[in-house]
Computed example of a mutant assay.
Amino acid sequence: MAQPAFEEIVEDFEFLEDWEDRYRHVIDQGKAMDPLDQALKVPATKVDGCASQVWLHPVIEGGVFHFDGDSDAMIVRGLIAVLRKLYNGLPVADVLKVDAGAELERLGLNDHLSAQRSNGLRAMIERVRKVAAETV
C-alpha cells in the first residue's frame, strides 16, 4: 500500500547494491527537503525518543495527511524524507493502515541502523500514527 514516491525509493535501493551508497541516498533525500520553519521547532512538534533533535509538523487538509519535519542529524533528516514519501498524500484513515515496519523492511533499514536510530525511527512512526488516530 506504499505511495508511488516510496516505491521510487524501493526501486532506487534495488539498483544500489552497496549499503554505503544506500545510506548516502537516504541522506540525499533529506538534503532535498526544505528546512522546517524555525517557528515550528517547538516542544509540541519535537519527537521524544530520538537521539538527535527531531521535529515533525503534521498538516491535515481535506482529510489528506501531510507532514514536514527536520532534524539536526543528516541521516535522521533522510529518514524523515523517507517517511514523508511513505505517508504524505494519504487519506488520514489510510495512514493507520500502513505497515511502516514491513515497508521499511523492504529497504533493509532495520539491519543497518543503530539501535538508537531504530528507536528514533519508531518514535517518528508512532507520532505520525498518533496524529492520524486523533484525527480519524
Rank of each mutant, 00 (worst) to 15 (best):
A5S: 15
E103T: 03
L96D: 11
A51W: 13
D99R: 04
E14F: 12
V64T: 12
G101T: 07
V47C: 02
A44G: 01
L113T: 00
A93G: 10
R129V: 12
Y87I: 09
A32I: 01
E14H: 13
L121S: 00
D21H: 08
H25F: 07
E7I: 06
A100C: 08
K46N: 11
I125A: 01
A39G: 08
E103I: 03
W55C: 01
G30W: 06
R127N: 06
D94S: 13
D48P: 04
V131S: 09
G69A: 08
A100G: 06
A115E: 15
P91A: 05
A100D: 04
R129N: 15
L121Y: 02
D111C: 07
A100R: 10
V26F: 05
R77Y: 02
E105R: 14
E61F: 04
R106Q: 11
K31F: 05
E20I: 09
S71W: 01
R129F: 07
A5Q: 15
R77W: 00
G78H: 02
I9K: 12
L109H: 05
V64I: 12
L83P: 11
D68I: 11
G101W: 11
T135Y: 15
H112M: 07
V98F: 05
E105C: 09
E7S: 13
V128M: 07
D94F: 03
D48A: 14
D12R: 14
V26C: 09
E103F: 10
A5W: 10
